[in-house]
Structure formats: C-alpha cells, structure tokens
Amino acid sequence: MASDGVVVEIGKVTGSVGTTVEIPVYFRGVPSKGIANCDFVFRYDPNVLEIIGIDPGDIIVDPNPTKSFDTAIYPDRKIIVFLFAEDSGTGAYAITKDGVFAKIRATVKSSAPGYITFDEVGGFADNDLVEQKVSFIDGGVNVGNATPTKGATPTNTATPTK
C-alpha cells in the first residue's frame, strides 16, 4: 500500500443473489490541510450489481451534504461517478479525517463476483488547492465463495486525467 498520499479503498462485503448490500468507500491518509475537492470514477458490471443509491459517509460534515457531495450512476456506461467540492468557501466542510467517504447500496443480481474497480481520477486537492497523490484499492461483493480481489494492489495516480 502507498505510504504517502490519500488511499481510496472500496470495501469488500459478502452478499447473495437478491440481497441488498452496503459497500463502503474509505479514505485513508487524509492530509493535515484536509480535502477540499476530489472527483473520480469507479467501474462495475450492472449485470452483477444493480447500484440503487449512494449515501455520504461520516467524513462528509456539510450539514447539507447534497451541496458538497454528488454522485451519478450510469449503468449503460458501467460507471459510478463521485464528486466532492467543499461548499462553505472557508474550508469548514472539508474532509479532515480518515473514514467512510461514501456507502454504495447495491442489489446482487448474479452469482458472479461483484467487482467495483477504479477507472479514472480527475483530481484530489487540499484546502490550499494543492494537488494530492492518490491511490485506489478495488473491492466489491463476495457472492458465495467468490472473492472480488482483482486489482487489490493500489493504483498510483500522480496526475489528473480527463
């Protein structure tokens, strides 16, 4: 695992066909100046998982989280898009600690492993708008004895992609 920078880890949970599971997305290594904004994309298989919603985690402190935390689910493109932009203008609602960034709610549709993997990152910046190093650890849903650990090695991303 990367020793510096922010680590975004997609949790690994267990479920069975027809059940709804909650998959946490963790941030670790949050910089001392916090995270003022970030955007990134995960990939998944809508034939295996139906993403039914995404909720902000406990490290989102904006009293009205829909102003700073936004997501979009595109089953036709097989992606989930995340956007966080601190909304106070003063840094008061920045992410300042490690913990759960988001909770992905999904219904298991198939007995195949439900991988959720890193696809791309736009950027991560602290309260001074300084770009942060970030790496990703894939996860998803274990169905029966299947284990979604494909790509469990962190993917280092030093520069934003478009």
Rank of each mutant, 00 (worst) to 15 (best):
D128W: 03
S135M: 03
Y44I: 13
S32I: 11
I137Q: 13
V141L: 13
Y74T: 00
P154F: 10
V6K: 02
I59M: 15
A125M: 01
R77L: 02
I73E: 12
V25N: 09
C38H: 00
T71W: 02
F84M: 11
R77M: 02
L129Q: 02
K12A: 07
K67G: 13
P113F: 05
T161M: 10
V41Y: 00
V143I: 14
V13M: 03
A146L: 09
I60R: 15
A112L: 11
I95D: 04
V41E: 00
L49V: 04
V13P: 09
K109R: 12
T107H: 10
N127K: 02
D70V: 15
F40K: 02
V41Q: 00
G123I: 00
A36Q: 01
K133Q: 06
S32V: 08
I80C: 07
K12L: 05
Y44E: 14
T90W: 14
K97T: 09
S16H: 09
D98V: 04
A125P: 00
K133T: 08
I73C: 07
K109E: 04
I54H: 03
R28Y: 15
P113N: 07
R43V: 10
I73N: 07
S111H: 13
F136H: 12
G139F: 10
E22A: 06
A94D: 03
G89V: 07
P24N: 10
G89N: 01
G34M: 14
S16M: 15
G34T: 06
T161H: 10
I116E: 02
I79P: 00
E86A: 01
V134P: 12
G122N: 00
N37L: 00
N145A: 12
D4E: 03
K67M: 14
Y93V: 14
G114M: 06
I54D: 06
P65E: 14
I73R: 10
P31A: 04
I59G: 12
P148V: 04
G34K: 05
D58Y: 06
I116H: 06
V121K: 13
V141M: 13
A125K: 00
T147Q: 08
G144P: 12
P113S: 04
F27K: 02
S110P: 12
F101D: 04
E120W: 01
A158E: 11
F27L: 07
P31Q: 09
R105F: 04
D138R: 10
I80E: 15
I52W: 03
A85E: 00
G144F: 09
Y26I: 02
G122T: 00
N127M: 02
A102C: 13
I80A: 05
D128T: 07
A106R: 00
S135R: 10
F118M: 15
F27G: 10
T117E: 04
D119S: 08
G91W: 01
L83D: 02
A94M: 08
R28W: 14
P75M: 02
A85L: 13
P75T: 03
L129H: 02
P31F: 05
N64S: 08
S135E: 04
A158Q: 13
V30F: 02
T147I: 12
V130K: 06
S16R: 13
K78Y: 14
D138N: 10
T157M: 09
T159E: 15
E22C: 09
Y74Q: 00
A146R: 12
V6L: 08
V121M: 06
E86T: 00
G57T: 09
P75A: 06
G5R: 11
G57V: 03
S135T: 08
G11E: 09
K78E: 15
V7G: 04
T90P: 01
D39G: 00
V100Y: 04
E131H: 02
T157N: 13
G5L: 10
F136W: 11
V17C: 05
S88Q: 09
D76M: 12
I104T: 11
F136P: 08
G15T: 07
V143K: 10
T19A: 10
N142M: 09
R77N: 00
I60W: 09
D39T: 00
G53F: 06
V8H: 00
T117Y: 08
D4L: 05
G29R: 11
N37S: 12
E22F: 13
I79K: 02
T159D: 15
G144H: 11
V48K: 02
G29F: 15
I60C: 05
A85V: 14
V17R: 09
S111V: 03
F40E: 14
D87N: 14
Y93S: 13
G140C: 09
P46A: 09
N156Q: 13
R105G: 11
K109G: 08
T19R: 06
G34A: 06
G139N: 15
P160F: 10
I59D: 10
Y93W: 14
G11D: 14
V143P: 12
I95W: 01
R77H: 04
I35G: 02
D98Q: 15
A125S: 02
I10H: 09
V130M: 15
G151S: 11
I116K: 01
V21Y: 05
G34Y: 04
V7R: 07
V48I: 05
A92G: 12
A94H: 02
F69L: 01
F136R: 09
G89E: 00
K133V: 11
A106T: 09
D119L: 05
A94E: 07
T19Y: 10
L129A: 02
G123E: 00
V61H: 13
T155W: 12
I59Q: 13
V7N: 05
V21S: 06
D45M: 08
P113R: 14
F40R: 00
V61Q: 12
T66W: 14
L83P: 01
K67L: 08
F136Q: 05
S3N: 02
I60V: 09
I35Q: 05
I60P: 11
P113G: 11
I10M: 07
F82R: 00
D39K: 01
V108S: 12
T157F: 10
D128V: 05
N127L: 02
F40I: 02
V141C: 10
V81R: 00
A72R: 01
D87S: 15
V48A: 09
L49W: 02
S3R: 08
V17I: 03
S88H: 07
Y115Q: 09
V7E: 06
F69R: 06
D39C: 00
T159F: 14
A2V: 10
A125H: 00
P154L: 10
D126P: 00
F118G: 06
T71E: 01
E131A: 03
F136K: 04
P75Q: 05
D39P: 00
D62G: 12
D62K: 14
V48E: 03
V141G: 14
V48N: 08
I35W: 01
F69K: 01
F136V: 04
D119F: 06
V7L: 10
T90L: 08
N156R: 09
G29S: 08
I23C: 11
T155K: 13
T147P: 12
P148Y: 03
